[in-house]
């Protein structure tokens, strides 16, 4: 019903306001300066116009990672709602989203009425980029996050990514929630998840869980040969992983800022 993903990057603008007195140097240090900058912002995709349901689902989501969602900016995508031709009380929707702690900083794919309402509420309108034009414009190698589009990637719910084919050296997989891999992860590959990571083949590459700071995230794998393991920025390299746990089924979690590697009993 609700999908949060940060598939969209917003071209933002930084305005520098320097309260220096106007001097001869003012040409080199302007009081106002426009700079182009890129942000990664979560997109809230709605498929229902039931505000009570939306609030309930949003609250459930926020409870999962309260720190992450507190005062988080969000762009509301209305394409699904409009596709289904549902009537949406946009003004109340914004109030509901605000109540859950999120800030609406833009809408996407709204119809004329919704866009007018948005402007009235001082919410900017973002044009929805077509996925095709984005693909050709950005070199996929420089893209920081590779969005899995292949058939081999099954998306169970809004955030969990499941992969059934081997992850090869040089590949990078990112999940906004949990990441489940039913094959091996090759040396030189990198898997990142904001939530937990499960690997049911050999884990030879780098595995980073809780990359957005979730210290509760864990890594589970059936054969630990990793080059690097990390949870919420605390990491160990293969040399630090002691012999007894290598090549065995283990779970890795964080205890008092220290990574603990324990066999799964």
């Amino acid at each position: 019903m609700i999908f949060i993903g940060s598939g969209v990057r917003i071209q933002g603008i930084t305005i520098n306001l320097l309260n220096q007195p106007m001097t001869i140097n003012s040409h080199s240090f302007p009081a106002v300066e426009f700079k182009s900058s890129t942000f990664s912002v979560p997109v809230l995709s709605l498929a229902s116009n039931d505000l009570i349901l939306i609030e309930q689902l949003l609250n459930d989501k926020v409870k999962l990672a309260p720190e992450f969602f507190r005062h988080s900016p969000v762009v509301v995508d209305l394409s699904e709602v409009n596709k289904k031709q549902l009537i949406l009380d946009f003004e109340n929707l914004v109030t509901v989203i605000r109540r859950t702690g999120l800030f609406v900083i833009g809408i996407r794919s709204g119809n004329d009425a919704q866009q007018a309402q948005a402007i009235e509420l001082s919410i900017p309108i973002n044009t929805a980029p077509t996925s095709e034009s984005r693909e050709t414009k950005t070199d996929s190698q420089t893209k920081p996050i590779t969005a899995p589009t292949d058939d081999d990637f099954i998306v169970n719910d809004s955030t969990t990514v499941t992969i059934t084919k081997p992850i090869r050296s040089g590949q990078r997989i990112y999940s906004h929630g949990d990441l489940i891999i039913l094959a091996q992860v090759g040396a030189g590959a990198e898997i990142l998840a904001e939530g937990n990571i499960h690997v049911y083949g050999s884990l030879r590459g780098r595995a980073l869980a809780g990359v957005q700071g979730n210290t509760e995230a864990r890594i589970f794998c059936s054969d630990l040969q990793a080059e690097l393991i990390s949870i919420a920025g605390n990491y160990k390299i293969s040399d630090d992983i002691h012999g007894a746990v290598a090549n065995t089924p283990v779970q890795i979690y964080l205890q008092k800022n220290t990574l603990v590697v324990k066999p799964i009993i």
Binding site: S140, T146, T149, D150, D151, K165, P166, I167, R168, S169, G170, Q171, G186, A187, G188, A189
Partner: peptide
């Protein structure tokens, strides 16, 4: 072996078949 693994990753993601979403 490492380079082959890398190449297999490229075959699976950067080929025309992969870009068109056809059978790999």
């Amino acid at each position: 072996v490492r380079d082959s693994d890398r190449m297999l990753g490229i075959l699976a993601s950067k080929s025309r078949r992969a870009e068109r979403g056809e059978e790999p």
